[in-house]
Amino acid sequence: MDQWLQALGKGGLSFFERLGRGNVFLLRTLTGLPSAMGHFRLVIQQLHSVGVLSIQIIGVSGLTVGMVLGLQMYNTLVDFGAEDSLGPVVALSLVRELGPVLAALLFAGRAGSALTAEIGLMKATEQLSGMEMMAVDPIKRVIAPRFVAGFISMPLLAAIFSAVGILGSYFVGIGLLGVDSGAFWSQMQSKVDLMEDVVNGVIKSVVFGFVATWIAVFEGYDAVPTTEGVSRATTRTVVHTAFAVLGLDFVLTAMMFGED
């Protein structure tokens, strides 16, 4: 019992210690943002490695998820003669939930882990130390541009995911299953609300982008500077981002769509 409590206390303390370090780190990063905007070339480079290189996985996943949703929903809806509702059902699930959440999870796997590994290796090979010794703050030069890029990319990737997904379900629904194209779009437009659904979805993806990028750059910066430390940090990025995104999604959903 004693040992159990001790383990719990130790775990709790180290958790809060990390959380505190993460917050201090976040503050330092945020104060570094103005200078990152000054070096906009760096941000563009990071937009390339964080955003452009994630398009492929986001596009393919969005298309597949949309097509599968189209097929599955059609099979259920057709029993009620409500196959015209395919558009709104698919659009709502993508725009409100699947788009932001799945895009964030894929983002953690593709871009977040890469960010952690890159920063962790820069730390392990003393590049960050070297920068500091050259009187250049690595938080401003290395971390802040990556943070900005992740923060900008995530909502765009989530929007691409949802849009491609809706197109995927359109192809399946109209091309394969013979749903009426007019009904598909007009039903969708009458059910999907710009503020309630689309903007809330975008807000979610902005929050997820913030958290996912924060976790990724923090894990990299905080990694134990060895090969093993970096690989552990990369794993932690993916796992922690998944927990954070799923937990936050529940909270945000309750806040946004809870009262009606």
Partner: peptide, 19 residues
């Protein structure tokens, strides 16, 4: 400190070049 470091150079064990 950053002003002072501009007048110090350091060569790290592995070089620490930006990859």
């Amino acid at each position: 400190l950053f002003q002072l470091r501009k007048r110090m150079g350091m060569m790290f064990q592995t070089g620490a070049l930006f990859t």
